[in-house]
Write a protein that binds this DNA or RNA. Structure first.
Lengths: 237, 237
DNA sequence: TTCAATATTGGACACTTGACCTGCTTTCAA
DNA sequence: TTGAAAGCAGGTCAAGTGTCCAATATTGAA
């Protein structure tokens, strides 16, 4: 009924085993509420209610709600980081087929309840919170690493800026499908057809793209992150 | 600094002029808060604070907060309905150029603060509220009327289902750009390039699409609306 | 001008939320 | 086994919320 979120939990220092488990339980419960009922419902009391513990127990691990929420977001986004990392490494395919696999994987992921509910919440939150904006920026940069490389291999004539813009539009196109064909949305049943359309049109877009006439050698992809963080995300391992 | 939202206000019965104005002020203030600070900040007290009136004054017009919110959403979405209607009627262009104009208009609109803030909030809300889902479904159906007609004219060989799926993916692609290149987002500066990419790739998609082998004659576009409401939205006037 | 309909105030109510604090209980290394 | 650290219960607090109501002020047609 409800696919349990696989969170990546940040390590804590010198703690009893029971405490370690509690933190995991707290975060997982928070994500569960977030997915089922949205951000406003993620209150300390609702978490405590579902876990059948007292609010002060949560407060023992997180001195403020904001700290907790930050940990929740970080845990959620880390799990997607792993998802993208898995996509990137597990492909010995040709560039075009690799891109096709990426598109299909993203659109499959969009069909899950978790992604359908979570990302619109994050997009909305990003409009009001600079930290969330940066976290989302980071995760999407990670997701585009594979795409930009495929584009460079498929169409080597392209300049950096065109490559990056194509990757961005490709990613944006897929994310937009969440709104209409995500889990439980009216068009979810058409996802097989949409996948085919997305693959065909987006790969054709990459193949037929032409470099801009006078590329600016100083152009760099725009980001909310500082240069060092950006490089760390895009650097080949 | 802040583009004032043009709301379409529902008519009320037998009321003083001051009351008519108040309702407009209340709704406009609510939208202002919604855009600036997000949904959770739209409280009766925050509206009253900004208008320098008492909470009970608002309560005189809306017996519950839910009623008010519903009117806010309805007003906001009506304004977009007018936007789409204007796009549809004011174009004596060839189908391909009409589609190009649509894509550019949507991406221009995405650059506004209003749309960048509002729609992610609506998408998030749709995940938790069936009524909002239906309202959004309705407004996007309106927005696709023009697109589906252009597609039918550009590529007459296509069956209904392929046409509708193409229109959906095209719209989804554009909406997805909001997340990355909306007002104040990192890629907003690349919008001219993204517009060119979107136009080229999406129009090529429509031109090169091929009908499915064995179309189901009973297939109808999926929607949350009942049949009558759907027809009313798509029927040519 | 009159006066009933309408608009608005000011306050009260019950409820929720995050934060915090004191004291009891459990854990687990020394 | 012991005791300090960690976990947790129970309750309090101020600040916030939507709702409601009685009293007052304003409007505008008759």
């Amino acid at each position: 009924m409800f696919d349990l979120p696989s969170l990546k939990i940040k390590a804590r220092s010198g703690i009893y085993a029971t405490g370690q488990e509690r933190v995991v339980q707290i975060l997982e419960t928070a994500v569960e509420i977030l997915i089922q009922d949205g951000f406003p419902s993620v209150t300390l009391r609702e978490i405590a209610r579902r876990m059948d513990i007292r609010v002060s127990a949560i407060h023992h691990y997180y001195s403020s709600r904001d700290d907790l929420i930050l940990d929740v977001l970080s845990g959620v986004l880390s799990s997607y980081e792993e998802f993208f990392e898995g996509l990137r490494t597990a492909s010995d395919l040709q560039p075009e087929e690799r891109l096709r696999a990426f598109i299909n994987a993203i659109l499959d992921d969009i069909l899950t309840l978790k992604t359908t509910r979570l990302f619109p919440e994050l997009w909305a939150l990003a409009g009001r919170d600079e930290n969330v904006s940066r976290m989302i920026d980071a995760i999407y940069i990670r997701s585009r690493v594979l795409v930009t490389r495929c584009i460079a291999e498929i169409n080597p004539a392209l300049d950096l800026r065109t490559r990056e813009n194509l990757a961005l539009f490709l990613t944006a196109s897929l994310e937009g499908v969440t709104i209409f064909a995500g889990h439980g949305k009216p068009w979810a049943g058409e996802m097989p057809q949409l996948k085919a359309i997305a693959c065909d049109s987006l790969i054709a877009m990459v193949c037929n793209a032409r470099p801009i006439a006078d590329p600016d050698p100083d152009w760099r992809p725009p980001t909310l992150l500082d240069a060092a963080s950006y490089v760390a995300l895009t650097d080949p391992v």
